[in-house]
């Protein structure tokens, strides 16, 4: 019973952070800020849900295979998400996407592109 409560709490925490990230994606003013907000979903949003699922697999389902797969999914998301983020951010900047409101500090534009 206690385990179920902990699992539910973790799921709720994950859902709250995913909600925060989604609001950020919808309301942030420019591409890069939206990407920043979406990182919330891929880190704590995902980790909360994955930890909950891991505990559920171990203590309720008693299935080691499921637990390993859940841990693997979490690890793979954590390993691949930043690589995708670098590539998208750099590609967006290279293809000429700039925020509407000019950034206060923009060393990348000053040094490499403009």
């Amino acid at each position: 019973m206690a385990i179920r409560i902990i699992v539910d709490l973790l799921l709720v925490i994950g859902a709250v952070f995913a909600l925060a990230g989604t609001i950020g994606v919808l309301k942030m003013p420019d591409t890069y800020s939206r990407m920043q907000a979406s990182t919330c979903i891929a880190t704590l949003g995902m980790l909360g849900v994955a930890l909950g699922a891991l505990l559920y697999a171990i203590f309720v389902m008693h299935s080691a295979g499921t637990a390993v797969k859940v841990a693997l999914v979490a690890g793979l998301i954590l390993a691949t998400n930043p690589v995708g983020s670098h590539a998208i951010a750099k590609g967006a900047y290279k293809s000429g996407i700039r925020p509407e409101k000019k950034m206060e500090v923009d060393d990348l534009g000053r040094d490499l592109y403009d």
């Binding site: 609001i23 309301k27 942030m28 003013p29 420019d30 800020s33 907000a37 919330c40 950034m103 500090v105």
Partner: peptide, 16 residues
Amino acid sequence: MARRCFSGCRNINPGI
């Protein structure tokens, strides 16, 4: 970040 998002995404100051 979650606090910034829930408070309407106003108090940001992005830059590189």
